[in-house]
Amino acid sequence: MSDPDEKNGLELAVEAVGGQAKKLATLLEITPQAISQWKQIPSDRVIAVERITGVSRRFLRPDLHPPELPSVDSAA
C-alpha cells in the first residue's frame, strides 16, 4: 500500500468507498465517466465527496482548503 500523503484527494475518496470509482459515482449520482475525466475533485463537489466518504476537504482539495494555521497571540 502506498503512503497516504502521496495520494491525491480523488484517490483517497475512491479508496474510502471501497476502491471503485463506479461506487463513488453512484453515491454522487453521476456517471463513472464523469469521474474518469477528473484530474482532481471539482470544487463544487468537494463538500459532497467529504460527506459521502468521510475524507476531510483538507485532504480532498488542499489547494482550496489548506490546514488552519495556529493563531498567533499578539499580546505575548
Rank of each mutant, 00 (worst) to 15 (best):
residue 15 E to I: 07
residue 15 E to R: 06
residue 15 E to L: 12
residue 15 E to H: 03
residue 16 A to Y: 06
residue 16 A to I: 10
residue 17 V to W: 03
residue 18 G to K: 09
residue 18 G to T: 08
residue 18 G to P: 08
residue 19 G to W: 12
residue 20 Q to N: 15
residue 20 Q to C: 08
residue 20 Q to I: 02
residue 20 Q to W: 09
residue 23 K to G: 01
residue 23 K to D: 08
residue 23 K to M: 12
residue 23 K to C: 02
residue 24 L to P: 02
residue 24 L to Q: 04
residue 25 A to H: 10
residue 26 T to K: 14
residue 26 T to R: 12
residue 27 L to C: 02
residue 27 L to T: 03
residue 27 L to E: 13
residue 28 L to G: 06
residue 28 L to P: 05
residue 29 E to M: 10
residue 29 E to N: 15
residue 30 I to T: 12
residue 30 I to A: 05
residue 31 T to Y: 12
residue 32 P to K: 13
residue 32 P to W: 10
residue 32 P to Q: 15
residue 33 Q to F: 08
residue 33 Q to E: 14
residue 33 Q to K: 13
residue 35 I to E: 06
residue 35 I to D: 06
residue 35 I to Y: 09
residue 35 I to M: 08
residue 36 S to N: 14
residue 36 S to W: 11
residue 36 S to F: 09
residue 37 Q to H: 15
residue 37 Q to C: 11
residue 37 Q to A: 13
residue 38 W to R: 08
residue 38 W to G: 07
residue 38 W to T: 05
residue 38 W to K: 09
residue 39 K to F: 07
residue 39 K to I: 11
residue 39 K to P: 04
residue 39 K to S: 14
residue 39 K to H: 13
residue 41 I to R: 00
residue 41 I to Y: 00
residue 41 I to W: 00
residue 41 I to P: 00
residue 41 I to L: 03
residue 42 P to K: 04
residue 42 P to L: 07
residue 43 S to E: 10
residue 43 S to N: 10
residue 44 D to I: 01
residue 44 D to F: 03
residue 44 D to M: 01
residue 44 D to W: 00
residue 44 D to H: 11
residue 44 D to G: 00
residue 45 R to I: 01
residue 45 R to K: 15
residue 46 V to W: 01
residue 46 V to A: 01
residue 46 V to L: 01
residue 47 I to L: 12
residue 47 I to V: 13
residue 47 I to N: 10
residue 48 A to G: 00
residue 49 V to K: 03
residue 49 V to Q: 05
residue 49 V to G: 04
residue 49 V to N: 03
residue 49 V to F: 02
residue 50 E to W: 04
residue 50 E to M: 12
residue 50 E to D: 10
residue 51 R to L: 09
residue 51 R to Y: 07
residue 51 R to M: 08
residue 52 I to S: 04
residue 52 I to Y: 08
residue 52 I to P: 07
residue 52 I to Q: 07
residue 52 I to C: 06
residue 53 T to E: 08
residue 53 T to Q: 08
residue 53 T to W: 08
residue 54 G to R: 11
residue 54 G to M: 11
residue 54 G to F: 12
residue 55 V to C: 09
residue 55 V to E: 05
residue 55 V to G: 06
residue 55 V to H: 07
residue 56 S to I: 07
residue 56 S to K: 12
residue 57 R to D: 00
residue 57 R to N: 05
residue 58 R to F: 06
residue 58 R to V: 11
residue 59 F to R: 15
residue 59 F to E: 13
residue 60 L to A: 02
residue 60 L to Y: 03
residue 61 R to Y: 02
residue 61 R to D: 02
residue 62 P to T: 05
residue 62 P to F: 02
residue 62 P to Y: 03
residue 62 P to E: 02
residue 63 D to T: 05
residue 63 D to A: 06
residue 63 D to L: 03
residue 63 D to N: 07
residue 64 L to Q: 13
residue 65 H to Y: 15
residue 65 H to V: 06
residue 66 P to T: 01
residue 67 P to T: 02
residue 67 P to D: 06
residue 67 P to E: 05
residue 69 L to S: 12
residue 69 L to C: 07
residue 69 L to V: 11
residue 69 L to W: 04
residue 70 P to W: 01
residue 70 P to S: 07
residue 70 P to I: 03
residue 70 P to T: 04
residue 70 P to F: 01
